[in-house]
Computed example of a mutant assay.
Amino acid sequence: MDRPVVAGVDGSPPSLVAAEHAARAAVRRGRPLHLVHGYLHALGYGVPVDPYELGVPAPSADGRAMLERTAAELAARWPGLSVQVRQVAGGPAATLVEESGRAELVVVGSRGLGGFAGLLLGSVSTQVAGHARCPVLVVRPAERPVQGAAEAPVVVGVDGSEPARLAVTLAAEEAARRGAGLVLVHAEAAEQGAGETDLLGAAAAEVRGRHPGLAVEQRPVRASAPQQVLVEASGRAGLLVVGSRGRGGFAGLLLGSVSQAVVQHAHCPVLVVHQHGS
């Protein structure tokens, strides 16, 4: 199945940055790019104020023009890239979660406000990262240009869990695609022994077995909060990869998790790993 790379685009600066990252990801993977605009308000679902006026609003000409303009610009920059556009009668987050069931990768922009209110209420990027059925790349307008970010290393968190092992696998593949190094980070408490530290060695050996030419760095860090370690490491990374423990839900959005906290506060794009169809 030729799964596309899907980007949510609404004409805002974060979504246009997401579209650029999505185009690069599609080219690296040899996949088509689909630009999708979920044009209904997230809370209104398109239901008219007058209950007698039933139906869903039609897509707008302005929305279509915005998508086609973005697609034309990306196709001009990457000749040979197949780009399709589509407007969907749905909220932005719900639309991208639905698209994720048929996608290789979903890319979404984030305004990067962070803070407790952002974690409590959620955002499109937070919701998609928590509920998607494929990997999700969350990007925001950043200090480092997209071109320069490709040269920085890929950083991934290691903790021995199945989600983290999958994250390491995808991080190594992404580093190999970019021609970048891979940094394996493990936050270990002061009381942990060699058994925990050996997680890094085992992960590095597995990566080198699959990617013999890949430069791999092991970075154990003494800290009690893995999300703080990963956010700090993201300041020198081109991409931060984290595993996700599942389907999210209101409790997950309310309480937060390592992946949700990193999505809110990282200084570089974040790849949240979900198995396809999970």
Rank of each mutant, 00 (worst) to 15 (best):
V155A: 02
G157F: 03
V158F: 03
D159H: 15
S161D: 02
S161R: 09
E162V: 15
E162P: 15
P163W: 05
P163D: 01
A164R: 10
V168C: 11
T169W: 11
L170V: 13
A171T: 02
A172Q: 08
A172E: 10
A172W: 15
E173N: 13
A175Q: 01
A175G: 01
A175T: 08
A176K: 00
A176H: 06
A176I: 01
R177E: 04
R178W: 03
G179D: 03
L182H: 05
L182A: 03
L182M: 14
L184I: 12
L184D: 00
E188G: 14
E188Q: 12
E188C: 07
A190M: 10
E191D: 11
E191F: 13
Q192L: 12
Q192W: 12
Q192E: 13
G193E: 04
G193R: 15
A194L: 13
A194H: 12
A194D: 13
D198R: 15
D198V: 02
L199C: 00
L199R: 01
A202W: 11
A203T: 12
A203Q: 01
A205T: 09
V207R: 05
V207N: 00
R208A: 09
G209P: 07
G209F: 03
R210W: 09
G213V: 00
L214Y: 05
L214Q: 10
V216H: 09
V216Q: 00
E217T: 14
E217G: 06
E217K: 13
R219T: 03
A223Q: 02
S224D: 06
P226I: 06
V229Q: 11
V229R: 03
V229I: 13
V229K: 05
L230C: 11
L230D: 10
A233N: 07
A233K: 03
R236W: 08
R236Q: 10
R236I: 03
A237S: 09
A237P: 07
A237E: 01
G238E: 09
V241S: 00
V242M: 10
V242L: 04
V242T: 06
V242K: 01
R247V: 12
R247H: 14
G248R: 04
F250N: 11
L254H: 14
V258G: 02
S259P: 06
S259T: 12
S259I: 03
Q260L: 15
Q260M: 15
